[in-house]
Design a protein around this nucleic acid. Structure first.
Lengths: 147, 147
DNA sequence: GCCATAAACTTGAGTAGTCAAGGAGATGGC
DNA sequence: GCCATCTCCTTGACTACTCAAGTTTATGGC
């Protein structure tokens, strides 16, 4: 097997491991999944802590319907609200609530810890973490580290 | 956001992109998903082209039930068969059929092309692809490049 | 002003996995 | 020999998406 295919398959595998780890920790401490967290995080990076659903989809690499479905439970538990647009009645902004902002800050701390754990130890000098991030940037979508 | 969390989130995002690309190409040409392909590939690397479901799950980073569900459609289309074990009636091997072997070879060619495309161009010198594979090995499960 | 087209969003149906529970068979203590 | 326990596998109920279709609202040509 070529190195390229090997790298691609390893990437898929590594992601599954990573997601499980983040899900376990975020779920245990805050009752949210990694997908929930990334959604909230992206909202928190937007001006006014709010975005149109379409832009959220684009930013997260999801479809519009994926965003609708992901937002629903977050609205139910009061972390996000729906806000209309004065100019365009088609758009429904997703906005962080006050609670959402507070909870997001806690989740972020947990996520940071988890990431630090994942890349802990002598196998992961800082330069390699940065190198990995750099390589992945060439591959992925837009990226999320907006701020 | 720390470099570690950034790397983790980028990894998740990159994987989604990659999976979509492989799914589109493998699906279009051979009617299988990337998950199907990895499953078949792993079987093809095993001695006798067959494995116990439990070991397949371990090797792929899935649960046993995920393997049961993933194998079902591949059995239906005749790429895989179920074989009993003479010594232990609990185990049901998953084995590649003759057709399965032939189709896998074609899929592998497609997957290689796709991987080559993904890492094509001046942004991806060979050393970087190898570097990425190396970094990912430290993260993931067992890896699949068995042969 | 009116209509065609396009954009934002939701919804129904389907796929790919998870976990928890359970059936069937193996195994070891005694 | 028998029972408790463990292993292998499947199944039901759930989650998290996808795509295709539909609704509602905006917009530009004329």
């Amino acid at each position: 097997m070529s190195e390229a295919l090997d790298a691609a398959l390893r990437l898929v595998r590594a992601q599954a491991t990573l997601v499980r780890r983040f899900d376990a920790r975020l779920g245990g401490l805050h009752g949210v999944s990694l997908a929930d967290f990334t959604l909230l995080l992206r909202l928190g990076q937007a001006p006014g802590d709010r975005m149109r659903r379409v832009d959220l989809a684009e930013a997260l690499g999801l479809t519009a319907s994926g965003v609708t479905r992901g937002l629903a439970p977050l609205e139910r538990i009061g972390l996000v609200t729906r806000e209309p647009d004065a100019r365009d009645a088609r758009v429904a902004y997703a906005a962080l609530t006050g609670t959402g902002r507070r909870r997001l800050a806690e989740m972020l701390a947990t996520a940071e810890e988890t990431a630090a754990d994942v890349f802990a130890g002598p196998a992961w000098p800082a330069a390699d973490v940065a190198g990995l991030a750099g390589l992945l940037t060439r591959l992925g979508g837009t990226g999320l580290s907006g701020s």
